[in-house]
């Protein structure tokens, strides 16, 4: 390729990606840098930002160490992400495998299982609050008929993994699992890409269905699992709308639903502390980067790429 051509090709390439470039500089990079600047300021959106140095970050550390709302928020976000992401991956794979079985009515099953993730978040939240009401909801009514306990679900500060009784976060996780269809669809597509010959060869060797799943399906799905793990974690950490709706806009009961994104929103738009909120946003960003980096580190051990990596 000649020099001229190379320059032309680059120009052409830039031309094609120019919409994104414009978006990147104006809607991502600029806000990103600006929020870094604000995080060193005191700012209420109305009067100009005033430089305060590392004060916001000092307060952030303070709030965390003294067990203030931020400490609750980090714990809640962590709990939600840590429990909901692995479960949604397992559930997504399970459902996808079932949906790949050639049975009658398969399209209908696919539609019905995907439908919950198309339902509007607000509608879903209202619906689940109704289902999970400890005294009038269908869930506890059913548990009662089965002779099981009566958890407080959204009304309770309890945590299944800590005290053994489900509370608000666990109800939130169940709700998230219900609308896990987007992941399911991705697994379904990936399952379709697995060459049939691999299973046929395994059958000739007399491998059981379970062994086939464990040694063929899972390894070949691992890149998709990895993708969903990363994206799912990021999504879980950013979840806002349903929590805002379900927790009276302030993380009720007793901050058991106060996640970082909600705390940040309240700090910014109720307490009018944009600088402090920006510092919190940066904390969130560093957290996400750290987790992603960790995930990529471990990926080498368990993600199996079929053929060449593009």
């Amino acid at each position: 390729m000649s020099h001229r051509n190379a320059r032309q090709a680059t120009l052409c390439g830039w031309g094609f990606i120019s919409p994104w470039l414009l978006g990147f500089f104006s809607l991502t990079l600029f806000p990103f840098v600006a929020s870094l600047y604000y995080s060193f300021c005191r700012y209420d959106l109305l009067s100009p930002p005033r430089w305060v140095g590392g004060e916001n970050y000092r307060q952030l550390a303070d709030e965390l160490v003294s067990g203030g709302p931020l400490a609750h928020a980090l714990w809640n976000t962590g709990y939600f992400a840590l429990v909901s992401v692995p479960l949604s991956i397992a559930l997504g794979i399970g459902l996808a495998v079932m949906l790949s079985w050639p049975v009658r009515g398969q399209p209908l099953f696919r539609t019905l299982l995907y439908l919950p993730s198309v339902l509007p978040i607000l509608a879903t939240a209202i619906l689940w609050q109704w289902l999970f009401d400890p005294r009038q909801g269908f869930v506890n009514h059913t548990l009662g008929l089965l002779g099981l306990g009566q958890p407080g679900w959204f009304t309770s500060v309890e945590e299944l993994l800590v005290g053994g009784t489900p509370g608000s976060k666990d109800a939130l996780i169940l709700m998230a699992l219900w609308s896990t269809g987007n992941f399911m669809v991705i697994y379904l597509a990936a399952l379709g890409d697995i060459p049939r010959s691999l299973y046929e060869a395994a059958q000739l060797d007399g491998a059981s269905r379970w062994r086939q799943f464990w040694h063929i399906t899972l390894p070949l799905l691992s890149p998709v699992i990895f993708f969903n793990l990363v994206m799912g974690t990021i999504q879980a950490i950013q979840t806002f709308t349903q929590i805002y709706v379900l927790s009276a806009g302030q993380g009720d009961p007793d901050r058991s639903l106060l996640v970082v994104s909600l705390h940040l929103f309240l700090t910014a738009f109720q307490d009018l502390r944009m600088g402090y909120a920006s510092a919190m946003a940066w904390l969130l960003f560093v957290l996400v980067m750290g987790i992603t980096w960790l995930l990529f580190r471990t990926a080498r051990r368990w993600v199996f790429y079929q053929g060449a990596v593009r």
Partner: peptide, 17 residues
């Protein structure tokens, strides 16, 4: 017991219905 109290008092406020 906290759970009973929460089931009543939280339910009062936020449940549609």
């Amino acid at each position: 017991g906290s759970r009973q109290v929460a089931a009543f008092r939280q339910g009062d406020q936020r449940l549609p219905g």
